[in-house]
Amino acid sequence: MIFYLSIAIVASVLMALGLLMMKSRSAHLPMAAGANVIRAIVIWICDPMWIGGLGVQTAGWALYVIAVSRAPVSMVAVMMQGGIALFVIASVVILGERANRREWVGIGAIVLGMLMLTLSIQAGETEGAFEPGTLLIFSALLMVAGLAPMAVARLNASGAAAAILSGVAFGLGALFTKAMTEEFTASAAASLALRIVSNPYVYGLIVANIVGIVLLQNSFHSARGIIAMPLSGALSNIVPIAGGMIAFGERLPADPVAGAMRVGAFALTIAAGALLAGSRAQSSEDRIVARAAAES
């Protein structure tokens, strides 16, 4: 299992690098909104740096699929959180982004939550039975919760609402990926082509990841990467950890201390997300600095 968790770490690095490449082009690319969605996405795809970032992201996702096919989704999600810290550091060093005291507290709390989750991992954690009906209900409830911030004008203006919903979408994509591998294993006797076209989770993960990418890129236009990525990344990892326990029979660690750390990490991540969600959109000065860094 350690081998597959190591693959998850490499996947998280590739995904963070891909997002950094995509964020570096946010000042030069249009938002995908309203009637402009298709045209904006075509412009994104035609941008060499952006499409290169998407390619790196795809390579990371492929490694994620390999990891999650052999290890519990909640444990893989913990390993994936290293990409959040890496992206924040790169945004500060490469893109020249800055954060105020409140925002650093929120970012630090998310990193601390990641550490607590990592320390809560225990060797020999196992999975239970997969429950498709439970996953469907869990997904529907999460979508409602993820859409709620879109109704708040301030969160829309700051880019936080799009970042939150993108995290929910990516998290659901992770759960659908795990469900896809479960179905593939159960129908091993059928041909690969048949297993792909007849598996509903294949379409679910494709839609979820496309929606997540579009929403996160949109959030990059209004929010600094050090705000948007931790918000989206924390949720994209918390969702599969919670979903792994609810729909895949994964359980909290038997050790009371490890169990308390994992629950505490959930609460800390949610509180940190609330802090970051209250951040304002990046100032015009921040945008100028980020644009100059991207062009240099």
Rank of each mutant, 00 (worst) to 15 (best):
M1E: 12
I2C: 04
F3N: 12
F3M: 13
A8D: 02
I9T: 08
V10H: 01
A11V: 11
S12V: 01
V13N: 03
L14M: 15
L17W: 09
G18M: 10
R25S: 14
A27L: 07
A27N: 13
A27S: 14
M31H: 04
A32K: 04
N36W: 07
V42A: 14
W44S: 01
W44T: 02
W44N: 01
D47H: 12
P48A: 09
M49P: 04
M49F: 07
W50N: 13
G52M: 00
G53W: 06
V56M: 06
T58V: 15
W61Q: 13
L63F: 13
A67C: 04
V76I: 12
V78N: 02
A85D: 00
L86N: 03
L86F: 13
L86D: 02
V88G: 05
A90F: 11
S91D: 13
V93P: 02
L95K: 03
A99N: 12
W104M: 13
W104F: 15
W104Q: 03
G108A: 11
V111W: 15
M116T: 05
M116S: 08
T118Q: 02
Q122E: 15
A123K: 11
A123D: 14
A129T: 14
P132H: 12
P132F: 12
G133P: 02
L136Y: 10
L136I: 15
L142S: 07
L142C: 10
M143N: 08
V144I: 15
A145G: 07
L147S: 12
A148Q: 11
P149V: 11
M150I: 10
A153H: 11
R154N: 12
A157V: 11
A160P: 04
A160R: 00
L165M: 15
S166R: 00
F170Q: 02
G171Y: 02
G171T: 07
A174V: 03
M180G: 00
M180H: 02
T181P: 06
E182I: 12
S187L: 08
A189P: 01
A189C: 03
S191I: 09
R195Y: 03
S198A: 14
N199D: 13
N199C: 11
V202P: 02
V202L: 15
Y203L: 03
G204A: 00
G204T: 03
L205W: 07
V207N: 01
N209Y: 13
L215I: 10
N218E: 11
S219R: 04
F220A: 07
A223I: 04
G225H: 03
G225P: 00
G225A: 13
I226T: 14
A228W: 06
M229F: 14
P230M: 08
P230Y: 03
L231A: 05
L231R: 00
S236A: 13
N237V: 01
P240W: 00
A242M: 12
G243Q: 00
G243W: 05
G244L: 01
M245P: 01
F248L: 09
L252T: 01
P253D: 07
A254I: 14
D255A: 15
V257T: 14
V257R: 05
V263C: 10
V263S: 08
A271R: 05
A272H: 06
G273A: 04
L275I: 15
L275A: 06
G278A: 14
R280L: 08
R280T: 09
S284H: 11
I288W: 00
V289K: 09
A293F: 06
A293V: 06
E295I: 10
